[in-house]
Design a protein around this nucleic acid. Structure first.
Length: 254
DNA sequence: ATGACTCCCAGTGGGAGA
């Protein structure tokens, strides 16, 4: 079973990239973030033709998440139960016996800002809920755009980024708290090329210079850990014309 | 260097992203 995550930065713009990628990588589940469209505009027909069921949770202009699955999904949950939120950031479902939680974590803009405070509240609520979900579903994957670079080795220039958004101690402490619920960063279960990133700024020729951050993650539960045989970032879609600024991440479960 | 690019909604500019 293959499970992947991809921040597409506008599904309307990226649908051709997505369909091409799915044809080359027929994963069993794909969590999408930053759809930037409402559910009435979700391309159900195109994805159905590509062999996928889709659960969507869209929003105009910003945010929006979806879960694409080969097999039908059960027990779909939108956003964090009990956490009132205007923003569409979480979609969870059970697929082939695995509880899959796809999430678009808040950006946070800058430490000290209102958006940073929202990010902290959101992370608090997510962690409490994930703990409950793990108790109910031992086979669980939490994946998506975390907007957190967990470690300095996930940052192309740790000195320049020190204390900046995605790299603050507060964000990294929250990441460790999530992992502490009983999860493992699938990417770090394996030897990886040095300077592996999942996001590159559109500006400054950042992709060409390989200046990026690893902020898109796949966390697997203790129960699933022995089944994970690979995890990789696919840079290919970032090389295409008019790419998303994020690359997909794929985990393979035996 | 408060830059740079891309997307969206707007409406000939500005917010947000990361």
């Amino acid at each position: 079973m293959k499970i992947a995550t991809w921040n597409v930065n506008s599904l309307a713009v990226r649908l051709p990239h997505l369909l091409e990628w799915l044809a080359a990588h027929p994963v069993d589940a794909l969590a999408l973030q930053e759809l930037k469209l409402t559910d009435d505009k979700f391309p159900h027909a195109e994805l159905q033709a590509a062999g996928y069921h889709a659960q969507c949770f869209g929003q105009r202009t910003y945010n929006g998440v979806a879960l694409l699955t080969r097999e039908p999904a059960q027990d779909v949950v939108r956003n964090i139960p009990g956490f009132a939120d205007e923003q569409s950031r979480v979609i969870a479902a059970t697929v082939q016996g695995v509880r899959v939680i796809g999430a678009y974590f808040p950006n946070g803009q800058a430490p000290g800002s209102d958006k940073f405070a929202y990010k902290m509240r959101w992370l608090e609520a997510l962690t409490a809920w994930v703990r409950q979900e793990l108790a109910a579903h031992p086979s669980l994957v939490l994946l998506g755009d975390f907007n957190i670079a967990p470690d300095d080795r996930d940052v192309h220039d740790p000195v320049a980024w020190a204390g900046q958004i995605h790299c603050t101690d507060e964000e990294r402490t929250h990441f460790r708290a999530l992992v502490g619920c009983g999860l493992h960063d699938a990417f770090r279960l394996f030897e990886q090329p040095p300077r592996s990133w999942s996001w590159w700024d559109y500006r400054n020729l950042a992709f060409r210079k390989n200046q990026g951050l690893r902020i898109d993650h796949i966390l697997v539960s203790e129960t699933l850990r022995p089944r994970v045989s690979a995890c990789a970032i696919d840079k290919e879609p970032r090389r295409r014309e008019r790419p998303s600024d994020h690359a997909p991440v794929i985990a393979t479960l035996d």
